[in-house]
Design a protein around this nucleic acid. Sequence first.
RNA 1: UCCGACAUAGCUCAGUCGGUAGAGCAGCGGACUGUUAAUCCGCGGGUCGUAGGUUCAAGUCCUACUGUCGGAGCCA
Length: 463
Amino acid sequence: MQTPRTKIVDVLQLEPPRAGVRVKGWARTVRDSKQVVFIELNDGSCFASLQVVVNPELANYEQLRKLTTGSAVEVVGEVIASPAAGQRVELKATEVSVIGLADSTFPLQKKRHSFEFLRDIAHLRARTNTFGAVFRVRSALAQAVHEFFQQRGFVYVHTPIITGSDAEGAGEMFRVTTLDVNKPPRTPEGAVDWHEDFFAHSSFLTVSGQLNGEAFALGLSDIYTFGPTFRAENSNTSRHAAEFWMIEPEMAWCDLDDDATLAEAFVKHLMRTALERCADDLAFFNKQIDPGLVARLQHVLESNFERMSYTEAVRRLETSGQKFEFPVHWGANLQAEHERYLTETLVGRPVFVTDYPTEIKAFYMRRNDDGKTVAAMDLLVPKIGELIGGSQREERLDVLMQAIRSMGLNPEHYGWYLDTRRFGTAPHAGFGLGFERLVMYVTGMENIRDVIPFPRTPRNCEF
RNA sequence: UCCGACAUAGCUCAGUCGGUAGAGCAGCGGACUGUUAAUCCGCGGGUCGUAGGUUCAAGUCCUACUGUCGGAGCCA
């Protein structure tokens, strides 16, 4: 029987000498000569590659001299202490099989490529140092999200991907239909008759699981969602995608303060996880992508997050003497430049800005007693600005209905949502975190297209 | 969607005053070496994003379109 494969992450931990070790991976580089061939083998299990040393005694030595970058290879050999600098151990091959040769058109070279070029070959990006690291970190963070909430007894709720509600209020939606777009059924008036569609009415891809999440929190107390969401906005930026993943906890018996406390613990758990479990990958990002990254994450982990009302934040910005492209004034949304100046310069650490003007926030946020603001919070962090947005929700039926009407919305579209306030309503709060923005923050990557395996953006749905 | 920049070899780029295409790397062939994004010698590789226009002549100037990038808006 064959010896089982050992992943390279484990091979690199072995104490040499150790014979009969089998590894499988892809050649990152091959250096050949008459006397010896060196293969850098990577299987994605860790950042580092394993140096395989091939001597001319092997029967297929001449074939191996032609081995190309990108080829899939299986090696059996002895792990020995490396006689040369550059690696602690290496694998002295006794048997090398070429499983899948990459021909000379393999586009990845032994040099740095631009991220723009790599996006065109997204199906091969996982073979690179940077993207291997990005997606290992992304996976570790996803695991950490579940860990955090599960440890606190939160119930993971799978909110629907397809929704019949076009009133989630978070942006343009993708329509889901099985009708023939060239020949849709018509009403007598000539409009498309959506009653003939699969769900017997209009349906869309979800833009947020929050409203469903609230319904489940008012029954299970603490819940969270973590899943894909979709926005059909024509946003052409490095921070927006049409398909992205969102994390939305929702807690009953919880006010805005509790909400912020949870968000702070959550962010710190994620930072700690990344620093502890992805040290090699983060060291790479810190060196090649974003100098200062590790120190910044460490700083967030060790800071007490500031809390400051919107009114106070505007006052501090107005009196700071700093010139902004867009002036600050009470009642306007904080611009990205304001948010960053606040957290980076005025406060110097992460800051929750709370209690925003009613007019600039969503209908479901709880009205404060001052009649001017709602119990909303944004968590601002150095370098990127807003990382988390949340609020205490309006649990009072009459106030909520009034809010819906005053924003020009129709309460009839919110039937089941309003039921939750009709039957045993209770105070509750929650927040939302865009998972890709988190991955960007932790890796230092600056384009959302480079932290999703196969990004969907306007005019781009390849792969 | 708005503003700006850019589009030349597989990749990253240069190309001056408008005169008919260059480098490095990669690839291929060879040499050499316990190598480390190895090194050395040689070779092949281009409808200059697309469509028009100006001109004796356009990679170069003009217009439109498409795409990419950066910023803004929207937002996560």
